[in-house]
């Protein structure tokens, strides 16, 4: 085989993906940018962006980022120890355990969130239980807590899977070497396991943070009545006047830039310690 000359097949094998990329990634992105820079009559200008600089919209942005941040942190706190215990389980049990936590992911997202709201209702299962044991009715649904719970519940598998994958690939000899050199269990986790699983943590954070920050269904189903996240704002804007996408596109684009900045900052942190295995 001659390595320098590529065959016809090698040259054009990637072209379907290029077409895909143009139609479904680059073109839509260009449209978003185009719409964000024009008004409904097609005149160019930054009006859509300047319109965002009002207290209400900025507040929605900040709340969205804050909620996404909190739910990502909670996912991490739950998923990291969980991944650790799964890797500690016997090999043949590991897949089953993992499956238990992955299974909800196979169910429809809307259905899951709807079921959650059913559980949290004033007359729902949890409150019935509370009443039965004498705690009394607790306001659960239509609260910020319910929104966070919805995000954590829906996105936890996306945190668990990458962390588990990276952690299970860590050489067992390294753990033994660390114990051999005098580290107890806790020190081994903090000095060896944690630094080596950073790539998994970073992918997990990315995969939970991004959908959390742009979700809209969860906040509508579980949040307070006037509660709004960026996703809701965009949805309202696009739906309100049929065929007019300009302001919604601008919000969308700003959100994209914000997410990009968040991920870039995070990758900077992880780059310093470990190479490879990082999303984006």
């Amino acid at each position: 085989m001659n390595n320098t000359k590529r065959t016809w097949f090698q040259k054009y094998a990637a072209s379907p993906y290029l077409v895909w990329c143009v139609i479904f990634v680059i073109a839509p992105l260009a449209f978003v940018v185009y719409y964000s820079l024009t008004d409904k009559n097609g005149n160019f200008g930054l009006a859509n962006y300047s319109r965002m600089f009002n207290g209400e919209t900025i507040r929605v942005f900040l709340i969205s980022l804050a909620f996404a941040f909190v739910s990502t942190v909670i996912c991490l706190i739950i998923a990291y120890p969980l991944a650790y215990f799964i890797t500690k389980a016997k090999k043949k049990h590991q897949n089953m355990l993992l499956m238990l936590f992955m299974l909800p992911m196979w169910m429809n997202f809307v259905l899951r969130t709807y079921a959650l709201s059913f559980l949290l209702e004033d007359t729902g299962l949890i409150n019935s239980l509370f009443k039965a044991v004498g705690i009394g009715q607790v306001k659960l649904i239509y609260t910020s807590g319910a929104v966070i719970l919805g995000m954590v519940y829906n996105f936890l598998p996306y945190m668990l899977l990458p962390i588990y994958t990276v952690m299970s690939k860590i050489d067992k000899n390294l753990i033994e070497a660390s114990e051999d050199l005098g580290c107890n269990r806790i020190m081994t986790i903090s000095k060896i396991l944690l630094p080596l699983s950073i790539p998994g943590i970073v992918s997990g954070i990315t995969m939970v943070f991004v959908p959390s920050v742009s979700t809209f269904y969860i906040s509508q189903q579980l949040g307070p009545t006037d509660f709004m996240l960026i996703g809701d704002l965009i949805e309202n804007e696009i739906k309100s006047t049929a065929g007019v996408y300009n302001y919604g596109s601008a919000i969308s684009f700003v959100l994209m830039v914000l997410i990009f900045i968040c991920i870039a900052v995070m990758n900077r942190f992880s780059d310093e310690s470990v190479e490879g295995g990082i999303l984006v």
Partner: peptide
């Protein structure tokens, strides 16, 4: 112990 595959800490 000196391990068969060295087990040096890659980080």
């Amino acid at each position: 112990t000196i391990f068969q595959k060295y087990a040096l800490f890659p980080h």
